[in-house]
């Protein structure tokens, strides 16, 4: 190994002073804040729909879970192809449904690129959430529903007062897993935009990877990964506490 001098906290200071770090951090937070609830909501909705039907439920489950087993590399490339400036989606939006007046440059701007990654993230996670919530829904005792019907609750009230509390353990589990996953988004960003333009679409991990493997600044990258690990740990502790207090 090329000997690297120990320079104390210099690396950490550099991490926080870096302009790009701030951009990247915001990107990661936005990504997580949008994809996590997004996946959970659509997954829960699909699970609720699936819960009531008898035929074809296995078929629907299998098909909806397929995106989850599709590798990130492949899924990212497919989305990149679809969202290309001259790709199918733009053509569809512009010439067929006529909601835009020109090609949207999805992959060329910061928020365009991150949006594509977010759409991919939500698309890929729906199946996982669906399976988990389906199992959880089936655990909610039927008599609770009956009791609430007798009390005169409509569908919405039943959802809020019976379903949600009944599956709250699963909701918290999904929240923890998905938040960790959200901060670890790497392959999709790399394949879709590669961090361009000028690192504006990078997230924490891709920026760290760039620093380590494209500029050779292992110290900086290691400091960044330590900061990330700390943040994730803190988040997990907070969520665990929430879980425990709710149980009480």
């Amino acid at each position: 190994m090329l000997a690297q001098p120990f320079n104390g906290f210099e690396n950490y200071r550099e991490v926080f002073r870096d302009q790009t770090f701030r951009t990247v951090f915001v990107n990661s937070i936005v990504y997580t804040l949008i994809t996590v609830p997004g996946q959970m909501a659509v997954g829960l909705l699909t699970a609720i729909l699936l819960n009531g039907i008898k035929r074809f439920s296995v078929t629907f489950r299998v098909i909806n879970y397929l995106p989850v087993v599709t590798s990130w590399v492949i899924a990212s490339l497919v989305f990149r192809y679809i969202f290309n400036t001259e790709g199918l989606l733009n053509y569809f939006l512009w010439k067929i449904v006529k909601v835009t007046s020109a090609n949207i440059r999805w992959l060329d701007t910061r928020w365009g690129g991150i949006s594509v990654a977010m759409i991919l993230g939500i698309w890929k996670g729906i199946g996982w959430n669906m399976v988990i919530f389906l199992a959880a829904l089936q655990q909610v005792p039927a008599d609770l529903y009956e009791a609430s019907e007798i009390d005169g609750c409509g569908a919405w009230k039943k959802f809020i007062h019976v379903t949600l509390p009944g599956i709250r353990g699963t909701i918290l589990f999904a929240l923890i897993e998905l938040t960790i996953g959200g901060f670890n988004v790497f392959t999709s960003i790399k394949m879709i935009t590669g961090g361009k333009p000028a690192h504006q679409t990078d997230t924490l991990l891709t920026w760290m990877y760039y620093k380590a493997f494209s500029t050779g600044r292992f110290g900086y990258a290691a400091a960044l990964s330590f900061v990330m690990a700390l943040c994730l740990g803190l988040l997990a502790v907070v969520q665990f506490r929430m879980m425990r207090s709710r149980d009480n």
Binding site: R80, T85, E86, G87, R105, D108, I192, T193, G194, K196
Partner: peptide
């Protein structure tokens, strides 16, 4: 002005 492109990820 739309005269030069090619350096964007989504370009041909």
């Amino acid at each position: 002005a739309g005269g030069i492109t090619g350096f964007n990820s989504g370009d041909i």
